[in-house]
Write a protein that binds this DNA or RNA. Structure first.
Lengths: 193, 193
DNA sequence: TGTACATCAGTGAACGCGCGTTCACTGATGTAC
DNA sequence: TGTACATCAGTGAACGCGCGTTCACTGATGTAC
């Protein structure tokens, strides 16, 4: 007889997922310094040697955690976009707001996602997850005039601006209530194609 | 008789400065992971207990290193600015180019300067150094129209854009040769006051 | 000029800590017959 | 249905590592007299 609950075939069940979720939680609660292989294992309720059966060492676990971060990031942007009016400008604003909301609510993760040295950047799952995030942004930029920098000009402009704004807000360098992003964006010279 | 060389009053001479310079060099050569109190001491040619006589532990040394980073940063922006034509637009472009040149040539330092948790952010020398850097940027933005976001709108716009561009370039997310910053900047809707 | 003394920068040994990794093992699970 | 076996996820102890910090010390320097 198969048990009534879905697939829990082995000892833990789905330790791989549990370790990643533990890492996401640790990062959220204690920042980058709190994210260690041993603490992930402890939080998932297993011995600290257990992760070795699922990940290629610490860096492998970090890669999976950051990939999960990119998935949440993509999801947040999509949610904002799909709740917006159906016109190019509203959609672009919504994607940017989703970007900033993710960065605000997941500060340590947002910072970690740009520390490429902590991750196996050739990992396929990681690459897929980060490419998907970029895709959301690129699609939102696509309706606008490419200008002198070629097709990627608008994407680089928007992404730089929103990433910089998020980064400076995280560091406390700018006061987001005094200069909200909504007041910054209209300064861009964006024209529909 | 005072010796002919300038002030070398004690055993080492100026260990405080030497430790900071060792830190800057370690950061440049080995990145954030190579920057430890013990390695700074070794590089300065003293025992690893020596720094305790000059800095308030590891975090105190880090604060001084980052403050030195901000001084170099300010200097780089000023050099670019002073070499530019004497009109507001050329000066703003030059300051941005100085910003990007520093970020490019001091990648680990540029990243560290935004990790506020590694530093005693209330340290006066640190505060002075970082405020001076911001001042250079703010002055370059001052001639331009403030717009809806108040006086800081242009500063936040420019700083976000250049910091984001530097950050994405560092992470390898954007290709600076394909979309150079010079092609991005003209997309901003900047008008003289 | 010389002596005694206080200062304090730098030493070197020791400490405890948490880290990632290794490895022989155990014991639950799924499968073959 | 029952037995034997292979698999392999997770254990727990041990390892070596580099880290920051502490502390009694030493010895060069500057100062007081």
């Amino acid at each position: 007889m198969t048990p009534s609950q879905p697939a829990k075939p082995r000892h833990h069940g789905d330790l791989k997922t549990a370790l990643v979720e533990a890492g996401v939680a640790l990062l959220s609660e204690g920042g980058h310094g709190a994210l260690t292989l041993r603490k992930c294992a402890a939080r998932a309720g297993v011995s600290h040697a257990a992760p070795a059966h699922h990940f290629n060492g610490r860096k492998g676990l970090m890669t999976a955690i950051v990939a999960q971060g990119f998935k949440l990031f993509t999801q947040t942007m999509l949610e904002h976009r799909d709740a917006a009016d159906d016109n190019p400008h509203a959609r672009l604003v919504a994607v940017c707001n989703g970007y900033l909301a993710f960065a605000q609510d997941n500060q340590a993760m947002a910072a970690l996602m740009f520390r490429t040295e902590e991750v196996f950047s050739c990992d396929p799952e990681f690459q897929t997850a980060s490419a998907a995030a970029y895709q959301v942004l690129a699609e939102a930029c696509a309706p606008f005039n490419a200008g002198p920098a070629g097709a990627r000009g608008v994407e680089v402009l928007i992404w730089s601006l929103v990433e910089g704004y998020a980064s400076l807000a995280r560091a406390g360098t700018i006061d987001t209530s005094q200069t909200p992003f909504a007041d910054i964006l209209p300064r861009l010279n964006l024209q529909l194609r």
